[in-house]
Amino acid sequence: MNMSNLVRTGAGLLMPFVLVFGFYIVIHGHLTPGGGFQGGAVIATAFVLLIVAHSRETIRERISLGFLKNTETLGLMLFIVTALIALAAGIAFFGNWLVNTGSLFGTPVAFGINPGDLNTGGVIPIMNIAVGLEVLGAMSVIILAMLSVVRGDA
């Protein structure tokens, strides 16, 4: 099945905005509503948009299932490694070893109601990015795998 030219062009125009919005939700997970799971789901809807607009052969050529599976595995590995480094740093598993150190994501946060600073949060932004990668890969793999066994035009 191939949608009309108008739909395909519109999907191509909308896709960057959907991607930017999804990455915004992932990166700002420790400041505003959102986080890794929600942002990953939003990014996966960009792939759904592409799949709806284009034919199945084009999708099969352009988007590789192995790459998405590797993205998912990379997200889970980054999550576990971030949690394990806390053991090497001398705190408990899943301890926050980056908070208030002054380095990356380590600026001390202003207590109480504040306008927010992106460079705070310790390991929370890193784990948000890891989980966002994992959910993005997982949702896309589920959709592509289910699409690959549908017979006929769909």
Partner: peptide
């Protein structure tokens, strides 16, 4: 935890094991 969003703090810091299990279930 240094985060303004308390829900994210709970998910990724106080209840990190919960999130690890959830990611494993999804995988």
């Amino acid at each position: 935890t240094g985060g303004n969003n308390i829900v994210t703090d709970v998910v990724f810091d106080y209840r990190g094991f919960d999130t690890l299990g959830e990611a494993t279930v999804l995988f």
